[in-house]
């Protein structure tokens, strides 16, 4: 099975109204070329699941500026003024989730769990509408799984089978997102032949990856 496809083919898997996870932390480790192709394609009414909305001219921030997003689920939107403006004008819905809860909700979806119990957010606004559960005398919030139609992630080195190595802090949300979406597309800085990555050091196993695009960074 050939997983290596062009960027144009890759973005054809994303349609109006879909929920899309996109890796990256302030655009570090974000699949920049896939995002640019999405901007060009102009799909709209997306629900984005991201750590943050990056900057107006970088990373997923461009999708916000281009008004392709109807809802954002993120831990931080403060570095992109346009997200805040659209939120205040009622043009976009924003669900703020604590960063650790965000990653665990994705992990729950990807790993077959019905939710997770976290102490984060107890007795704050975050607990509104959520079930509080006491375990051994301590209160936790039940946070539900979060999955997506498509995840767009970035790897540093990816073999043609889809085994991924990440680089430094460009790892962030990418490995967890790879488990939590129906279709997972990885943008590789470098695509290598099968066998060139030692199975001992694989960071995301190939079975999670649906398609690979060559980002051409190397």
């Amino acid at each position: 099975m050939n997983k290596l496809i062009s960027i144009e083919e890759a973005v054809n898997h994303i349609e109006d109204g879909m929920t899309v996870m996109i890796g990256g932390f302030l655009a570090v480790g974000a699949p920049i070329r896939l995002i640019d192709a999405l901007v060009e394609k102009g799909v709209k009414d997306l629900t984005l699941v991201v750590n943050d909305t990056a900057f107006i001219d970088t990373g997923v921030g461009k999708l916000i500026v281009n008004k392709q997003v109807k809802k954002v689920i993120a831990s931080h939107i403060g570095t992109n003024k346009e997200t805040g403006r659209q939120m205040n004008e009622g043009e976009i819905e924003v669900e703020l989730v604590p960063q650790g809860t965000l990653t665990e909700r994705m992990r729950a979806a990807g790993f077959g769990l019905g939710g997770i119990l976290t102490p984060t957010g107890v007795n704050t606004m975050v607990e509104e509408g959520k079930k509080k559960i006491e375990v051994e005398g301590k209160e936790y919030l039940l946070e539900l799984p979060l999955k997506a139609d498509v995840a767009l992630i970035k790897g540093a080195k990816v073999d043609k089978k889809g085994n991924i190595l990440y680089n430094k802090t460009a790892q962030n949300f990418n490995p967890t997102m790879a488990t939590a979406a129906g279709t997972v597309i990885v943008e590789a800085d470098e695509v290598v032949e099968i066998g060139e990555i030692d199975p001992n050091v694989v960071m995301t196993p190939n079975i999670f990856v649906t398609y690979i695009v060559d980002g051409g960074a190397k």
Binding site: A74, H76, I77, G78, G84, L96, P98, G100, P119, T120
Partner: peptide, 15 residues
């Protein structure tokens, strides 16, 4: 006025 989001702060303060 200012709604940047909590980022990792809530987890850090609890954990």
């Amino acid at each position: 006025k200012m709604v940047p989001g909590m980022g990792g702060a809530m987890d850090l303060v609890v954990g």
